[in-house]
Simulated scan of single mutants.
Amino acid sequence: MPAFRALLALAFTSIVYAAPLGGGISVSVRSNSYSADGTFYAPGLGACGKTNSSNQLIVAVGHAVFDSYPGAALHPQNPNKNPICGKKLKATYGQKSVTVTVEDRCAGCPGAADLDFTEAGFRKLAALGVGRIHGVKWEWVI
């Protein structure tokens, strides 16, 4: 019986920690590493219900990640209650890194794991004039 409980606990842990995305990609609250494009935007009232400014270290995650985050389906009509809101991630581009807080959903991000930074966050990785950076590695900060 203890072996069954351990197996059951492991099964529920997997459900809590990972949710599938289209194309076989899964989002995980564990420290899995992703590779994506990074862009920047001028934030305002975000999908998480907070108003942010360009000088804050905020990020909008791709809509596929935002919508598939574990627990997001519990509140499909109110993205403010998505458990991804307030989560931190560390993004690295080349030798530079930044830790940002998820406060928005990037509807225009074509890649499942793409990130749309505020200007302050993007500047920590590259000059704004670059516009789009490829090969941004990122992971959840637990």
Rank of each mutant, 00 (worst) to 15 (best):
V98D: 04
V136L: 09
K81N: 13
S68P: 04
A36W: 08
A126H: 08
Y34N: 10
G121W: 11
H134K: 06
I58M: 14
F117H: 00
L57A: 02
P2S: 13
G44M: 06
A64I: 12
G38R: 10
H134L: 01
G22Y: 01
N52A: 15
A73Q: 08
V98M: 01
L7P: 00
V27R: 13
A3D: 02
H75I: 12
V100G: 06
L74V: 14
L74D: 14
A112N: 11
L10E: 01
G71P: 06
R105Y: 08
N32Q: 15
A18K: 04
G49Q: 01
G71R: 14
H134P: 07
A72L: 09
S33K: 15
V136E: 02
Q95C: 04
C48H: 05
S33F: 01
T101H: 02
F40H: 13
R123I: 01
R132T: 08
I58N: 11
L115C: 06
V102D: 05
L115E: 03
A19K: 13
G23C: 05
T39L: 07
K50S: 04
C106Y: 06
G62N: 05
P2N: 13
N80P: 00
K81S: 15
G111K: 10
R30M: 07
G135V: 09
N78E: 14
A107W: 13
M1N: 05
C85H: 01
V136P: 08
L128E: 01
S28C: 13
K88L: 14
K137G: 01
P43A: 13
V16P: 00
R105A: 15
T13E: 03
A107I: 10
A19V: 07
F66W: 07
A73V: 02
G38S: 03
F117L: 03
P43D: 11
A127I: 05
S97W: 08
L74M: 10
G111V: 06
D114R: 05
K96A: 04
Q95W: 08
V130T: 15
F40G: 04
P110E: 07
C106D: 03
S31M: 02
H75A: 12
S53L: 09
G49V: 07
E139V: 12
N32A: 05
A18Q: 13
A107Q: 10
T99S: 11
T101Y: 03
A47S: 15
P83L: 13
S35K: 09
R132V: 15
S97G: 12
G86R: 06
G135D: 05
L74K: 07
E139A: 12
E139I: 06
A6M: 04
F4P: 00
T92L: 00
N55E: 13
G108R: 11
K90N: 11
A64R: 15
S54I: 01
Q77W: 01
G94V: 11
V100L: 03
Y34M: 01
P79A: 13
A11D: 08
N82D: 02
P20M: 07
G71Y: 12
I58R: 12
G23M: 03
